[in-house]
Every structure is written in structure tokens, then in C-alpha cells.
């Protein structure tokens, strides 16, 4: 009997690559699939099953299927790649400093002065009571004609 090509092996490996690459390129854009990468984990689980089937049949029925060598290589590579993905998402991305001394609810926020995007110096305390309309503030501002407070968003930068 002619040994047949073992496409499920290669398909599984391709799906591993796609399951990893689709996180930074696609699923990261949507909060539901970014905060927890369930879509990618699902793809990788399917890929792992395909690889397992491919490797098993290469070893159990070598007279019918090819892929003992290529299957072992692809499966090992996949384990490494999936491990790298899991470590990146669940360890490295969550390895943030504790920020123990960051201001907590109820505390007075430390004041500061920083340049805005046109280079003009802006002081935080001066932003907390502005005429309505200058700081895009909803409800209370519309009712009182003044803003009362600010939302500060510390972000990692644009690159």
C-alpha cells in the first residue's frame, strides 16, 4: 500500500502559527478577545488536536501514513511556540509593578504641571474646575455650568 501524505499534521502546524499570529494582528483589537485570549486558545486547542491525530497515525500506522519525522519536529516546534505564547500573555504581560504607593480612592491626588501636546504648561488642579465645554465633561457640568473633576488616563505611549 502506498503511504499517503499526512495533511492533518501540516494543517495543525499552520493553525498553530495562525492561532498565535492572529492575536497581535487581529484579536487584540477587540476588548472581548484581548483581555482574555479565548479565541486564540480555542484555535490552539484545535491545532494541538490535529497535530496529535497526525502524529498518532504516523506512528501507529506507518505503513499507511507518512510523518514520523516531520510530525515529531512540527509537534515539538508547536509545543515551544504555544508555550511562548502562553508565557507572553499570562506571565510577561501581567508582570506589572505593584504600584503600592500610587494614590488610592479617597486620597488627594498629587498635583503636577506638564506640557500639553502643543507645549503649553497645564496644571492638574487648574483642570478640576473649568467652565463647561472646555474639558468635555458630562452631566454635572451641564447642570452646574462647571466641570467638577477629571478622568486621568496614564497610557504606555504611542509607537
Amino acid at each position: 500500500m502506498k503511504r499517503s501524505w499526512n495533511p492533518i499534521l501540516w494543517g495543525g502546524f499552520a493553525l498553530v502559527l495562525a492561532g498565535i499570529a492572529s492575536y497581535p494582528t487581529f484579536f487584540i483589537r477587540f476588548p472581548v478577545t484581548r483581555d482574555f485570549p479565548w479565541a486564540n486558545l480555542l484555535l490552539l486547542a484545535v491545532a494541538a488536536c490535529m497535530l496529535a491525530v497526525g502524529v498518532l497515525r504516523a506512528f501507529k500506522r506507518p505503513e499507511a501514513y507518512r510523518g514520523k519525522v516531520s510530525g515529531s519536529i512540527l509537534a515539538s516546534l508547536s509545543v515551544l511556540l504555544i508555550g511562548f505564547f502562553l508565557v507572553s500573555i499570562f506571565y510577561i504581560a501581567r508582570n506589572l509593578p505593584a504600584s503600592k504607593n500610587a494614590p488610592r480612592a479617597g486620597e488627594i491626588a498629587p498635583d503636577f504641571t506638564l506640557p500639553d501636546s502643543t507645549g503649553h504648561a497645564v496644571t492638574l488642579s487648574s483642570l478640576l474646575n473649568l467652565p463647561f465645554g472646555t474639558n468635555n465633561w458630562p452631566d454635572t457640568a451641564a447642570a452646574t455650568g462647571k466641570t467638577s473633576g477629571a478622568v486621568l488616563i496614564f497610557y504606555r505611549g504611542y509607537w
Binding site: E107, L124, A150, V151
Partner: peptide
């Protein structure tokens, strides 16, 4: 690190969110 603060008009922190990961 990613962090979001809500301050009231007296400069007091009313709400803060320190995300568990940068994703």
C-alpha cells in the same frame, strides 16, 4: 503602567483602576 483615575473637583481620587496586565 496602564492606570485610570477619576478625580473630583477637590482633587480627591474617587475611583482608580490599575489593570492586572498591560493587555
Amino acid at each position: 503602567r496602564p492606570a485610570e483615575y477619576l478625580l473630583d473637583s477637590s482633587g480627591k481620587v474617587r475611583w482608580v483602576n490599575l489593570a492586572e496586565g498591560y493587555l
